[in-house]
Design a binder for these strands. Sequence first.
DNA 1: TTTATAATGCAACGTTGTTGCAAGAGATAT
DNA 2: ATATCTCTTGCAACAACGTTGCATTATAAA
Lengths: 137, 137
Amino acid sequence: MEQAIRNTLKDYNLRSTSCREDILGTFLNKEVALSHGDIEDSLGERFDRVTIYRTLKTFLEKGLIHKVLDDEGIRYALCKDNCSEQDHHHDHIHFKCVECGQTNCLANVHIPSVQLPDGYQASEVNLLIQGRCPACT
Amino acid sequence: MEQAIRNTLKDYNLRSTSCREDILGTFLNKEVALSHGDIEDSLGERFDRVTIYRTLKTFLEKGLIHKVLDDEGIRYALCKDNCSEQDHHHDHIHFKCVECGQTNCLANVHIPSVQLPDGYQASEVNLLIQGRCPACT
DNA sequence: TTTATAATGCAACGTTGTTGCAAGAGATAT
DNA sequence: ATATCTCTTGCAACAACGTTGCATTATAAA
Ligand SMILES: [Mn+2]
Ligand SMILES: [Mn+2]
Ligand SMILES: [Zn+2]
Ligand SMILES: [Zn+2]
């Protein structure tokens, strides 16, 4: 596991540091979208706030994680389809449970294509559905 | 115009105050989604920051405006289909131009329905498409 | 082991958002 | 027009969130 994380970082051309290992590990453990604050809470005082910001930014740029839009701020989730710096591709929806507050990637639910009016060119699509998750119904 | 704004506020059971009139007027002028900061900039020093926050919150609750999710924060736009406190209903998409930065409601482009896995109950859907607007193509 | 380079912690700062409370303004009835 | 009730505002103080510059430390490769 530890080793798998290290390999992943290497695959993305990132040096292995304990902060990166722990943050990546956190994403792998909890399988929900996490905010900066969530990660900070989860890791305790072990790393500086700034380092967490920078790590998230780095992961984002390298294609290790992607943003998850939310009506109360931005969260992040692991990319599960081998994104890279050049090619971030996502066409799954995000579901936020209004009861338990968790936000997940529904990797199997694809975003339907949308017919835009003339002149609009789409490059990225984000779909958030809010409601109740199976555990809260 | 001034009078129309006053009437709208009355329709939504809101007292007419100059802050509310100005903010509502701002939404009517600029026809794009606005962030708290946009409004603050646009109104200058005339009102306290806190009052703007509270006004947006009130408008949101009463169904005068709705949130527009964005990858760099939350924006707000006028509800154009007579929403109320009880019934906020929106099924149009939002388009953000990566060139000029403007975010708009595309009222005529409806959000396609999505088939969720068993157990998920949807109550609200937000769809943001990013790309280039006609003016920036 | 040395070295080049990248990552981290810290300090300092700016922005964004929240709360309590006293003063002020809007609506309504008199 | 005035008094009264209630809602709204501004202010102050605070908390949360996010950014930058720089000296120190750690990683990876030679
Ligand atoms: Mn996702
Ligand atoms: Mn809209
Ligand atoms: Zn839930
Ligand atoms: Zn544009």
